[in-house]
Design a protein around this nucleic acid. Sequence first.
DNA 1: TTTCTAGTTTAGAATTATTATAAACTATAG
DNA 2: CTATAGTTTATAATAATTCTAAACTAGAAA
Lengths: 139, 139
Amino acid sequence: MIISNNLKMYVQKLRSSNLRPTKQRLKICQFLFNREKTFHFTVETLNKKINKNKGMKVSLATIYNTVEAFTSAGYLKEILTSKNKSYYDTNTKSHHHFYDEGSKELTDIHYSQIKLSKVPTPPKGKKIKNLEVVIRIQK
Amino acid sequence: MIISNNLKMYVQKLRSSNLRPTKQRLKICQFLFNREKTFHFTVETLNKKINKNKGMKVSLATIYNTVEAFTSAGYLKEILTSKNKSYYDTNTKSHHHFYDEGSKELTDIHYSQIKLSKVPTPPKGKKIKNLEVVIRIQK
DNA sequence: TTTCTAGTTTAGAATTATTATAAACTATAG
DNA sequence: CTATAGTTTATAATAATTCTAAACTAGAAA
């Protein structure tokens, strides 16, 4: 029944963003949002995890479409890196990352771990949406 | 004679990084570093600019190799973006960017414009290579 | 200076990530 | 139930980058 509650919740969530609650989108919602910790991923890793088990397969094109749709809807946040591959995060709140250049792993840094004492004013007509710090680390 | 001085300077710079001062590398050095303002670019734009005039052509492969070598040597810094294309900056000092989610444009923020009063300690065995702040802005 | 060699350049092929296409499918309004 | 606009899908196309291996060259050593 937890599952059925979640399903209903995700159906509503999707509807509220004008996204039809298809079985593919619901499967991806369950996978991405039905967890405690935040989740970092690329389309490649999401595709593997979603299609690992025997159930219904979701095509790669749909994974791309869905990630794009969920990002526009504000369910996911794109992470800035220097890699030629898009990284996404289920934590859409302002927060920060360690980026390990060796292992190419991203780790969350809680918002409270970093404090800024001076922030510039945004260009005219623009406002700050959020602020992210990436700390590149190496051995 | 300014040109010849620069040439000597770049020859030394390259030698000091164990990079042979080839004519291709020197041409790229002159183009990238012989300027007042810092320069943001992609491999695509650098290739066009370097090969625009009638002089010696530098192959695309060499542009890639050189940008990679200069980045490793610390002459260039890779910029964080969400685009699937690498951006580089001749300003290798710690500095920050506004990222406009609408236009997907990056703008420099001078390092003095941002002050951090609290920074987390890196995971065991790792050290901080650099730290970048990206401020996402929108209308 | 000449010779040798490791480093470098190059064109083109291969790979990787992403986007586009268009036909088949489906959620849902009426 | 039916019509239709939205969605999924396999596949092709595109774009950025990396790989490959042959030709070239800077600089050390003879």
